[in-house]
Write a protein that binds this DNA or RNA. Structure first.
Length: 638
RNA sequence: GGGGUGGUAGUUAAGUCGGUUAUAACGCCGGCCUGUCACGCCGGAGGCCGCGGGUUCGAGUCCCGUCCACCCCGCCA
């Protein structure tokens, strides 16, 4: 048995040794990243999560002569027999074997390299051990090699050996530490809340957990600690935070996983701006800790800009606009209505629907929008077609009308050119600020679809123009608060209102009288914090006044009994002496993704699920034995 | 629930108009090599072309179905 581990403790990690360590005898443990056998001398790149050190198995160093000739003395504990044995092992070694070496740090002399941080030195091996052999991995453990995601997820433990992923998870650790330090320093208490909670309808679909002790009944996995953190405020804990797992049984996306982590925060005796200042401070601390970046240089006031929800939707068609570039939308709806469609049949139809009262003019359920692709983008016609092709992924998308502006202001390459009146064309050119060579893209119809299409177009054009990279931050950080969205959503079909966020969000003070007269115009103290086009957090100031609460329920058509059934415990709590309170939750995974420049959420989660919410590593979910279901009094119909 | 892209050797990819023995790089195995660092040189093995059906004299290639992964819409307050 070798002396490693019990007697010979690890003295350094593989990314640590520098020129200052020359002459020291060290012990390193790690994985064989690569092996280069020169017949005599064998080089091994030894890897752990801190980096790579080149270790050298040289039979010439098994004799005393070379040591004394080159280094003037023998290293301590020098045993020629062990050194020779080590060289024999090196000839057997293969990638991903786990080994330990004891050796002397020496200068690489003329063979220094800057490719690795330890490139000034190498370790001449005096003694080695093979802790474990390894099967040849199904893919190379390397950052540059692109491998099918399916295989990476199946062998996730190997994928996680890649330096990039290790670095990302280390970054995640730093975010967690910075968060705890900062929030604790701000007087927030880290308190835990249940995962097994009561199912409440509405909102995200819950995962259900059968309750064995109460047959036929179910828990839900918490989609967030929302209700509990409000109860903690009622209890007087004043300031709370938690880094907490949340579960939502909804379809995945590049930035959405069925189980994910939130930095959850709630404050008492607070308002919107106080919450903003706290979060800005937290984000500054995280950037400092994880990236060494001082955001004060970008935001000297220490504050992120704010934009009303309405403005964000109007200018960018999104409640989470990417402001690393501008390319604003131009809303032509009013102009088109005024011109009765401007000669374009489709637009005339929309104008007629408003005129006849079929559409409510104050809510604008159908709109006409434009986006100008500047001449400087220099996009060819095939490139424009390519942009349109990407939009076809959107359900309901029927095509993008374009118009290229000629020198005299007329439109070319456009299906609209023939029907548009000169007057409308000039008015649109002026409204868009379009100059010769620019291309105007039009989209019209249902507001939600127009916004989905145009927001995607805006982002695609920016990528095509090189304003932002395909993915990643590109060295730009654009934070934004999107504030005060409508409290209610109006459903054209059922002619009813639904809570846009949740029923416990406080309306903005001056809109409270509108609850009875014009609910569609009631905005609320809700806010999202946006980074580079991703929503990295959202929250609200809560409604703690029972009277206003009742009036909100009235708008929603929630009868007393409904409210009691769903949220009775919270309503009771709010009547028991609830302080004014509000909070926010940051998407910890998204933060980690954006901050580390990762391409998907999966790259910042050690063991992520696939798009279809399965775990390729373990095969979960699986069927269970009928006896297990019987114990729960559950029958599978599949 | 809907749309899109992809699945060929262990990995990444090529494969023309349907035509003979399905290519390449890396990896793997064997041999040589004392200064490489993605070492190099020589040789070798490796394939249910995702799966099932169909058309055809003949299918990796065409058609139908299906599974899996990814991206998007819906959904996610």
């Amino acid at each position: 048995m070798s002396r490693f581990i019990d007697e010979l403790k690890r003295t350094h990690r593989c990314g640590e040794l520098r020129a200052a360590d020359e002459g020291n005898v060290v012990v390193l443990f790690g994985w064989v990243a690569s092996r280069r056998d020169h017949g005599g001398c064998v080089f091994v790149d030894l890897r752990d999560r801190t980096g790579i050190t080149q270790v050298v198995f040289d039979p010439a160093y098994a004799g005393a002569e070379l040591w004394t000739a080159k280094h003037g003395k023998l290293p301590e504990d020098f045993d020629p027999k062990l050194a020779l044995e080590a060289h024999g092992m090196a000839e057997q070694m293969r990638t991903e074997w786990v080994i330990g070496v004891r050796g002397m740090v020496v200068s690489r002399g003329n063979n220094k390299t800057t490719k690795i941080a330890t490139g000034d030195i190498e370790v001449i091996v005096l003694e080695a051990t093979i802790f474990n052999k390894a099967e040849t991995p199904p893919f190379e453990i390397s950052d540059d090699v692109q491998t099918r995601e399916e295989i990476r997820l199946e062998k996730r433990y190997l994928d996680l050996r890649r330096p990039k992923l290790q670095h990302t998870l280390i970054t995640r650790h730093k975010i967690n530490q910075a968060t705890r330090n900062y929030l604790s320093g701000q007087g927030c208490l880290e308190l835990e809340t249940p995962y097994l909670v009561k199912y409440t309808p509405g909102g995200a679909r819950n995962f259900l957990v059968p309750a064995r002790m109460a047959q036929g009944k179910f828990f839900a996995l918490a989609e967030s600690p929302q209700l509990y953190k409000q109860l903690l405020m009622v209890s007087g804990f004043d300031r709370y935070f938690q880094i907490v797992k949340c579960f939502r049984d909804e379809d995945s996306r590049l930035d959405r996983q069925p189980e994910f982590t939130q930095i959850d925060i709630e404050l008492s005796f607070t308002n919107q701006s106080e919450i903003f200042r706290l979060i800005e401070g937290l984000i500054f601390a995280i950037w400092k800790e994880a990236l060494g970046i001082d955001l004060k240089e970008l935001y000297p006031s220490g504050q992120f800009p704010e934009m009303p929800y309405e403005e964000a939707m109007g200018k960018y068609g999104s409640d989470k606009p990417d402001l690393r570039f501008d390319l604003p939308h131009v809303d032509l709806t009013d102009l088109i209505l005024e011109k009765g469609g401007g000669g374009v049949p489709f637009w005339a139809e929309i104008a007629d629907r408003y005129k006849s009262g079929a559409l409510r003019a104050d809510l604008k359920p159908e709109i006409v929008k434009a986006l100008v692709i500047p001449a400087a983008a220099n996009l060819s016609r095939p490139q424009l077609e390519e942009l349109e092709k990407g939009l076809r992924e959107i359900k309901g998308f029927r095509g993008l009308a374009r118009a290229k502006i000629a020198e005299d202001g007329s439109w070319t390459q456009s299906p609209l050119a023939k029907s548009i009146t000169d007057e409308a064309r000039l008015a649109i050119n002026a409204a868009c600020g379009a100059k010769p060579g620019d291309v105007i893209c039009f989209q019209f119809g249902k507001e939600t679809l127009v916004h989905t299409v145009m927001a995607r177009l805006r982002s695609d054009v920016a990528k095509r123009m090189g304003l932002i990279p395909e993915y990643g931050h590109g060295g730009k950080w654009s934070f934004l608060w999107v504030v005060n969205p409508p409290l209610f959503e109006y459903d054209e079909e059922t002619k009813t209102f639904a809570a846009a966020h949740h029923a416990f969000t406080r309306p903005v003070d001056e809109h409270i009288p509108l609850l009875e007269t014009d609910p569609a115009r009631v905005n609320c103290y809700r806010y999202d914090v946006v980074l580079n086009g991703f929503e990295i957090g959202g929250g609200s100031v809560r409604l703690h006044d029972p009277d206003v609460q009742q009036r909100v329920f009235n708008v929603l058509g929630i009868r007393d009994q409904d409210a009691r059934d769903k949220f009775g415990f919270l309503l009771d709590a709010l009547k028991s002496g609830a302080p004014p309170h509000g909070g926010i939750a940051l998407g910890m995974d998204r933060l980690a993704m954006l901050l580390s420049g990762a391409q998907t959420l999966r790259d910042v989660i050690p063991f992520p699920k696939t798009n279809q919410a399965t775990d390729l590593l373990t095969g979960a979910p699986v069927e269970v034995d009928p006896s297990q279901l019987a114990e729960l009094k559950i029958k599978s119909l599949s």
